[in-house]
Design a protein around this nucleic acid. Structure first.
Lengths: 207, 207
DNA sequence: ACTTTTGTTAACCATTTGGTTAAACTATAT
DNA sequence: ATATAGTTTAACCAAATGGTTAACAAAAGT
């Protein structure tokens, strides 16, 4: 009656999830085909609908996991109590690590976010559960008042940090082509950015 | 025999182009429906195929125009001979202007670029016609040698500038929600960034 | 053993979607 | 005015696509 953990069942459902993950994150919801997912999983298309009601449901299952992977670190930086500079270093470094392992992530998330912003935001943060930027903004204000950093609108600082961290993954095809970078070189550049971005920021705001 | 510029023809073809522009740039190639475009244009679906062979052809027509709108400024900054700081200011300011008028642009371009990077890049820059970053890189090296700016890998400087300029448009839904910004406030922030980004960069690299 | 539940498939179905056809309509040239 | 070339449409078509069904197989419960 209750779902048992038969070895076969698990492996089928997980094959589906792995396949759906691959297809959805590379093609997006609109570009993904249920048949592609079935093929990728090596099973019959009907089995997809046996485990997951329909395409939307399957997509949402994948999507929520990926979005949770992408966003919580933004929340984290808001709420942690580490010193500002350390916080910046942690954020950049952890984010880049995450995206080096899942380079599709930024495109996937940004793409789906723009496809239907309302539904998206509600699904990622429940209507209530929003990260509170107050702590982060306050912290910057404190540093300014203490005379340790220059006056800057915290929002710009926040945007700059996130932009420099994420965008290179989105613009990769453009960067590698126009800067004549090999894949290896691009990855090296990205690796450098873990230190380069915090340095760039701190050089800019430190008094 | 030869196509005449009858008023009606022009207006039909242009209605199609305007409609295709709207649908493609908001939904993307995969999300766009030929019927939607026809409806938007207020004409019969068959007429789309009368003026444009098929969906791919129509898409490409729109796409090339938009991509040309998005990319040439990157080329420009490489090739101009303006002083470095001025170049940065021009780039940021002009780019933001362009995207304020066409906020869909970054998403559309990034999206299609990731959908098929090879075809994309070839279509935007013909296989030969690549911008040469050498001038820009040299210029930064010169400034470093002249002791006017700190040592920095020009590639990082380039990535930072582009990232800070473009990304806020891609992440808008996230920013407005998490920072509790109204549309008006968001636009004000963006407006500020025309000065804020160059300042942020120059503060960081100036000796 | 045999009944029931769960897992899996091939074949099928309905809708959507890009694209075509043939006919009708409009403007222009003769 | 009428023939002609260009424009527009309604109706249609075939392929793609998401989803269902019915039958069968494998496990689990009794």
């Amino acid at each position: 009656m209750v779902k048992k953990n038969k070895i076969k069942n698990i492996s089928a459902e997980e094959k589906i999830l792995a396949a759906a993950h691959k297809v959805f994150t590379t093609k997006g919801m609109n570009g993904a085909r249920m048949q592609d997912i079935a093929d990728e999983a090596g099973i019959n298309k009907a089995l997809l609908h046996y485990y997951f009601k329909d395409k939307d449901k399957l997509f949402e299952t994948i999507f929520v996991v990926e979005a949770q992977r992408f966003f919580p670190k933004i929340t984290m930086i808001f709420q942690s109590d580490a010193p500002l500079f350390e916080k910046i270093e942690n954020f950049v470094s952890e984010y880049i690590d995450e995206m080096q392992e899942n380079p599709y992530l930024p495109w996937f998330v940004i793409n789906e976010m723009n496809r239907d912003p309302e539904k998206f935001m509600d699904k990622v943060w429940g209507k209530e559960n929003l990260p509170k930027p107050a702590r982060f903004l306050e912290q910057i204000e404190e540093e300014i008042k203490a005379g340790r950093i220059k006056r800057i609108n915290p929002i710009h600082l926040f945007m700059n940090m996130i932009s420099m961290t994420i965008f290179p993954f989105l613009g990769k095809p453009m960067f590698v082509r126009n800067l004549r970078l090999s894949d290896k070189q691009f990855n090296e550049i990205i690796e450098q950015r873990k230190k380069e971005i915090p340095k760039f920021i701190i050089d800019s705001i430190k008094k």
